[in-house]
Structures are given as structure tokens and as C-alpha cells.
Design a binder for these strands. Structure first.
Lengths: 251, 251
DNA sequence: CGCGATCTCACTGTCTGACATTTTGCTGAT
DNA sequence: ATCAGCAAAATGTCAGACAGTGAGATCGCG
């Protein structure tokens, strides 16, 4: 018996009441990942901490290095650890990266979008619900560099008029407003929503005058934010979102 | 010929202008994961599709099975594929699971919470911003089973009065309201926010009369939702959130 | 003595080949 | 016909090897 493996560890075989998931045992790499994740979540391992070498982790858990590596890939792709090579390298507990969470959300929303579980209307609704009050916050809290960034975005937006890259600038405009709220959580959740909208649902064949209108409304919103007019800015944003609603379609 | 590996493929060594990320090359498992993800995201692989066996994938990319497996772990932990064993087993493209995205968000928010990047105030702000208008939606769209679930949650909430499990019921109450909005995206984003609030920031030593007040406000909100009074319900929710603000603290 | 070139070492990254385990479908005996 | 048991195909796991990287230690030359 190549004994003392995960099987024998902590499994009251005779008294086990057979848990619901019929799969008797989760794969070893899952269990290792779970335990390491637990250590990170409860603070036993703090960001920046270095984990033991893969071979040593394997020794501790009684599994091979390949298994440990698969577990580490799981944690790494969840943004919990990061690995590097060289003498000073190894596996380190990493700080959570808001952008990574945003990206993950964007992929998830993108894949669900269009299906019955997440129709376009729900996405548009969520966007308005988030972005209108966020604009009010932005008007109250914007710093000078946000205004600069907004006006800069505006400039580039006008220059790319009619070009197909337009949606990039449009996206950037809305991103900066979210950042101006100073609330990282709002930014993290909202950005993916309209990234999905503009990359998957934006109808390309809009008439030129449509984008002219968009530009004008954007300028108006910027001025209201610059003036610190929270009510006016959020109302203008509400109107703007209503006006461009028709530019998005399921196909 | 174990040659013709990723190194020789597509790397104009002499003319290479050294791309910005100083790391010359991403690890092979990353590249494999990226390419497979691309196939899933652009629809070449639809949910339910079965990928070739690991060894075959390895053959296609010119990497070993271990490398493929590490790539698959990455994709699996992002919810893009799922594997099963046995002769009918294999790797399958899976549908995105909103709950999985919620869990991921919760972990991420939980880890960032408290730090300067995400102070408690930002979380409370985001919560109010989301939940107040969501309550209005819930009042307009709630189905009978939502009302049943709310009243049921209410019952259990009263029964657990004073017990430490209280926060579970409290959580459930807010979850059901989100579900009653009928907007899966809102639910997906909002639930993690107050799960983090109640598991990490809820001050345990609140006086009994505090929870009595909470119960009364919950009942009031339920009745307004049942009556379809969107304005009243969202206003009541706003007051409620303001009242319980003090129950959350950084420590 | 100063300082760049090189060596060393401790890691992660990758490959190979083997065996274990889990399902399912098939086959053959009753 | 029914059911036990075997074969097959896939993932899960292991062990050992070697390649590649990066930073500090060491050496060599001016």
C-alpha cells in the first residue's frame, strides 16, 4: 500500500453518510487548492507572503509536484497567488487586482449575454441603474485630473468621428466617469457592463448624425460634472443613456 | 524530433524588437489556455462541446499533457470548461454559472475590503446605490413566489431573534429582494456586496432592540413591495440602509 | 580598490512514461 | 431477458528528469 495518501486522511469511511454529490472525492488538486485558499482567505497567509517550494508543498500534503502545480494554477487564475522564477522566485500570495476582477466579470457577462438568463434589456437596465447615480457622485467628487482625462477623451472622440474605433473612445469616456466617483467597487462592477454592451451589442451602422448627438451630449455631461452640478449631470446622463438605447441590439 | 517547440514557432529572433513585457515569453500553459479561451469566447466552441482528449490537445499544440492539464485547470477555475472521468468523460465547454461569478466576486471584494483601495464606506455606498433602486424594481416585478419567500424569510428571521445566525436570515432577505427584480445581472453583482458586509463588517454586539427595529423595517418593506408601491418601497429601503449603517464597522 | 563578467544555486517550467481510477458499453453465463 | 463482470477510454496521479531564469556570490582584470 502506497499508504497515507489523501484517501486515508480524514475520511471516516465506515460512518460517512455519503454526502449529496455522488462523486465520492474531489480531485486532489482541488482539495489542495481549497486548503491553500482557506489559508489565504482567513489571513494565515498575507499578501506578499511566500509559499514553500512546490515540492515541499507536495510533501506536506502527501501529493506529487504535478498535483500541487495544478492546484497553484487554479489559485493563480483566481488572482490569489502569483509565481515567478529564479532564485528569489516562488509562489507568492498576491494582492487582488481590481482590473483582473473586472476582466473576469466581463468574460462572464459576455458569455451569458444574449441568452434568456441575461437579455440585452437586463444589461441596459443595470447600466442605467448604476451609471446615473454614479454620474451624480462623479460631479461631487471629480478631481482636476479626471476633468482633464474627460476632456482629453472628448478630443480624441471627436477626432475619430465616424471611424470604427469610435466605440473605444466612447468606452473610455464612460470609464473615466466611473473612476471619478472615487468608488473602486462601482468602477469594478460597472465597467464590464458597458464593455460588453459596446463590444457585443453596439450596432455599427449608426448614421453620422447619431455620433454627433452623442458627442454633444458627452460635452454637456462633462460641463455639468465640471460645474459640480450633481443633479444636472445625472439627469443629463439619464437622458443620454435613453437616447443611445436604440444603438444596441441583440443581433 | 522534439524540436519545433513553441520557442521556434513564430519568434523572429534576430529582428525581434523585444516587446514591452520583459518576460520574453508567457509560459506555455498560459498560451494554451489563452488560445482555448479564445475559441470559446468567439463561439468556435459552444457550451456542451467536447474537447479532444488531453493527449491529443497536447499533440496539436506541441506540448506535453502536463502542460495541457495546467491550461485546463486555468480554464476550469474560470468556469469555462468542466471535466469528467470515465469513457464518456472528457473536457466539455460549460455554460457560465452566475453563482460561480458571484462567489468569485465575493472572494475578490472580501480580500480587497478594508484596505485603502476599498474602504467600508465605499462598500456601503455601492450597496445603497444598487439596492435602493433595485427595491423599486422588485416592487414592480415581484411574483407571488417572491412574496412567499420574503414572508418565509421574515418568519425565520423572527424565530432566530438574537441568535448569532441572524445575519444569515438577514442576508437571505436582501437576496430575495434582488432576485425579485428579475434582473440576473443586478443579483449577481449585488449579492456579493452585502455578503461581504455581513460576514466581515457586521458588528455582533448589537442590542436586541436593534434587531427588533430591523425586523419592523423589513416587514414594512415587504408590505410595500407586496403592494407594488415602488416609490414607497425604495424610500423605506433607503431609510433602512441608513439606519443599519452603524451596525457595520471596520473592526 | 573598484567593477564588470561569470558561476552558482534555488527555484519554476516542461517533458516523458507509467500506473490508478472512474465510467460506460459489451459480452457472456445463467 | 437479466445481470455480473470484463474491456476500453478517458481523466487523475505519480516519479524522475532536465531546461530556463534571475539574483546574489565570486572571480578576474584594470
Amino acid at each position: 500500500m502506497p499508504s497515507a495518501r489523501r484517501n486515508s486522511a480524514g475520511l471516516p469511511e465506515s460512518t460517512a453518510p455519503a454526502s449529496l454529490p455522488v462523486t465520492r472525492l474531489r480531485p486532489a488538486y482541488q482539495q489542495v487548492a481549497d486548503q491553500l485558499r482557506e489559508l489565504i482567505l482567513d489571513g494565515s497567509l498575507a499578501p506578499g507572503d511566500r509559499l514553500p517550494p512546490e515540492s515541499e508543498i507536495g510533501g506536506n500534503f502527501g501529493v506529487s509536484r504535478s498535483t500541487v502545480r495544478e492546484a497553484l494554477r487554479v489559485l493563480a487564475s483566481q488572482g490569489l497567488v502569483r509565481t515567478s522564477r529564479g532564485t528569489t522566485g516562488g509562489t507568492f500570495v498576491s494582492q487582488v487586482d481590481p482590473d483582473q476582477i473586472s476582466d473576469y466579470l466581463e468574460v462572464g457577462i459576455g458569455l451569458m449575454s444574449g441568452s434568456a438568463a441575461l437579455p440585452l434589456s437586463a444589461i441596459l437596465e443595470a447600466r442605467e441603474l448604476l451609471e446615473v447615480p454614479a454620474t451624480a457622485l462623479a460631479a461631487r467628487r471629480r478631481e482636476q485630473h479626471h476633468l482633464d482625462a474627460l476632456r482629453d477623451a472628448m478630443e480624441r472622440e471627436k477626432r475619430t468621428r465616424g471611424r470604427s474605433m469610435k466605440f473605444r473612445e466612447h468606452q473610455h469616456f464612460h470609464d473615466v466617469i466611473m473612476q471619478a466617483t472615487g468608488n473602486g467597487l462601482l468602477t469594478m462592477m460597472t465597467e464590464p457592463v458597458f464593455h460588453v454592451l459596446s463590444t457585443r451589442f453596439l450596432r455599427p451602422a449608426a448614421q453620422p448624425e447619431f455620433w454627433t448627438m452623442v458627442d454633444e451630449e458627452h460635452e454637456q455631461i462633462i460641463e455639468l460634472i465640471a460645474a459640480g452640478d450633481a443633479e444636472g449631470a445625472s439627469e443629463a446622463m439619464r437622458r443620454h443613456l435613453n437616447n443611445i438605447r436604440g444603438a444596441y441590439s441583440e443581433d
